[in-house]
Design a protein around this nucleic acid. Sequence first.
DNA 1: ATGGTGATGTCATTCAATGACATCACCGGC
DNA 2: GCCGGTGATGTCATTGAATGACATCACCAT
Lengths: 188, 188
Amino acid sequence: MVRWEPDAEGRLRVAALELYTERGFEQTTVADIAERAGVTARTFFRYFADKREVLFAGSSVLQDLMVTGLKDAPAGASPLTAIAAALDAAATMFGPERRTFSRQRHAVITANAELRERELIKMESLGAALAAGLRRRGVPDPRAGLAAQAGLAVFHVGFQNWVAGGDEDFADLMRAGMADLRGLAAEA
Amino acid sequence: MVRWEPDAEGRLRVAALELYTERGFEQTTVADIAERAGVTARTFFRYFADKREVLFAGSSVLQDLMVTGLKDAPAGASPLTAIAAALDAAATMFGPERRTFSRQRHAVITANAELRERELIKMESLGAALAAGLRRRGVPDPRAGLAAQAGLAVFHVGFQNWVAGGDEDFADLMRAGMADLRGLAAEA
DNA sequence: ATGGTGATGTCATTCAATGACATCACCGGC
DNA sequence: GCCGGTGATGTCATTGAATGACATCACCAT
């Protein structure tokens, strides 16, 4: 007989996504989440900095994947080609089996302004990491920042298509978005 | 003898920026701001939805300016050229006389994650408005969304240069950023 | 003068967030 | 087998953001 069930953090994540889906983010209190997970509210705040953060545990994984993908791009690649490699690496996290989960999570986030704010700042953090990666590859500012932001634009638009769409491959959507961006910039 | 001094909203804005600068955002309570403005905390929340919003009163003005600039771009202009016109229109809000204020406000915002979140969601709103403007000009999705996001990237990078730099003209920075973006996309 | 209106104040409440301290199963050393 | 340390959790108290309900009262139109 153990004193506590293991994996309180995982149970809190599951409970939070469930309740945010059932009632909405604002109508859910931290005490509700904790109760469903079988812990107290105080324990919730030991695992997550705030009520929003419980939905964003995977974001550092994505960031690491993309930064690694950027680092491993061919040395001679142009900035945007290197960014394309980072986008390609992100596809690891968005296989077909993750779609249902991603869709549910995305629906919760888009339904609430505070959660969108948090998602945006994670994106900004990702952008800063990509810009730093480009600088490490010798791309000077402000081109590094600009290329990173442009890559985020492709990610953002492509991700929404992936979540909203049918069964398109994530990597294909990223490549198509990058091609679109290049097409736009080529027009007078 | 009037019952209340006029322009409580303006006094609250000034008091908030002062206190956020002096002590930092987290170390300032709404009661502090209200007291300096000569009202109660309840009145603060009648003018501003939350403690952050007091810094973002001008953001809808910027959005209107840029959307108008986009609408007034030549009918034959390409998506990115139309976006460039929107960026140019934004320069109205960023003349040399606004720099000191913008710098102070920007310093407060960058120093605090919650305030950066709020700024980012204002940017997202701007991006959505620009994308809608492009669609009204006949640009189909996903190119409209992509061009709008790319425009935000130019704005973002350019604005930081304007605030951090010496006396560069805002419109010049926007044009330079757009040229950089086109250069990046032209590389293999 | 009079009654309505709008801006503000007062009061009470909920809930997010955090610090201080207590509890107690588990584990390693003896 | 006992025993002290450790880590995860609970309990309690507090601050401050945010909001609803209701009161107040100068000002204005009639």
